[in-house]
Design a protein around this nucleic acid. Sequence first.
DNA 1: TTACGATGTATGCACCGTTCACATTAGGGG
DNA 2: CCCCTAATGTGAACGGTGCATACATCGTAA
Lengths: 204, 204
Amino acid sequence: MPQSTAYHHGDLRAACLRAARELLEEDGSAGLSLRAVARRAGVSATAPYRHFADRDALVSAVAAEGYRELAEQLAAAHPAPSTPDDLAAVAVVYVRFALDHPALFRAMFAEPCDPTSEERVAATAVISEYVQGIVRDAFPGSDASALSTAVWALVHGLAFLHLDGKLDTSTPEVVVEQVRAAVYAFFTAAPAMRAVAGRGEVSA
Amino acid sequence: MPQSTAYHHGDLRAACLRAARELLEEDGSAGLSLRAVARRAGVSATAPYRHFADRDALVSAVAAEGYRELAEQLAAAHPAPSTPDDLAAVAVVYVRFALDHPALFRAMFAEPCDPTSEERVAATAVISEYVQGIVRDAFPGSDASALSTAVWALVHGLAFLHLDGKLDTSTPEVVVEQVRAAVYAFFTAAPAMRAVAGRGEVSA
DNA sequence: TTACGATGTATGCACCGTTCACATTAGGGG
DNA sequence: CCCCTAATGTGAACGGTGCATACATCGTAA
């Protein structure tokens, strides 16, 4: 632990992850270069290669961290959401996470989930199961798999549309209200459509 | 127009866009470099700068093209979708577009919509209005703004989750069925939740 | 015809990811 | 205790990139 000489860093891997996070927050995805990470960690340009196979591996590790944090914040938002209000609150947390850490969020979803990056696959599975758990409890009689996909997609899409400037993001309050409105809209308008469409039940 | 000498290209801007599209399809976003575009257009590395301020401008132009194509395909999918079946069909086209042109789709939504890139803003506005038009017609009594946001977010989220490998994309049929199931799930499960939540109407 | 503005070229700089040979050091087996 | 090996960090180098700058070429309009 004590670095009598400065040659060996001690925990370079952790230092790289921290540096990468900082760069991501400060300069966006563009600023995250392996060399910049090394510089910030006070180490030579090629040192990180002892801990990460390549740049992608570093990004994947950072993304996995992001997944864990997102999962934490979602769980903290509401223990067992069941009403539209609850769901909207969770959705707000999801979108807020994306807007608070835009570059990290992009890193989390920018590239196809490499099947070789087990850390990353496992981390996303946690979120997927969290959503499924909510849906199973809140909608006992429904197709939990399909509906949880739909719910995740709705919230994920809201996050990305906001992130990409397709929706108004002028103030946090505006965003919150938009997310709430979108979630509510689903639960109020869906029956309206069924009436318009004149369909009692939907075919399998 | 005939290039007696090869010095002047004729229509380098269009050639660059075409080359960029090809590179995007062949090598993904990573392969799209200004130099590669110039090479493919058979021109010096810095020639494209006469037609695009920088790399971002090129990407924005390609993205704008993508928006136009997507809008076309959506419009062609169904003239006036109103039933869940119709909406699901449109959603399938949206998701299929993303999966057929993954790198292009990412380019379209990867970076914040630069307010200076009017071409890009205008192109996304077309899609936004298309969705709003559908919602206005299909859900006469609802908050068209909020609901169209929700619908776009649902479909957009489905596209991205598939693109990022968070959902099964093994065969096109599987994808189609997942999208249809997710869309249907909304219209069948939403009332179920309202029952569970015990709410007649949602507060403003 | 000639001058000019638009278009394409050549060169150079700083940065990037990555590889490879090498230096340093921690920690365990004699 | 010492030395040897494996892990870790260094340095130089290669090819690629975006971009700025100075220069060459050419269509066109006065």
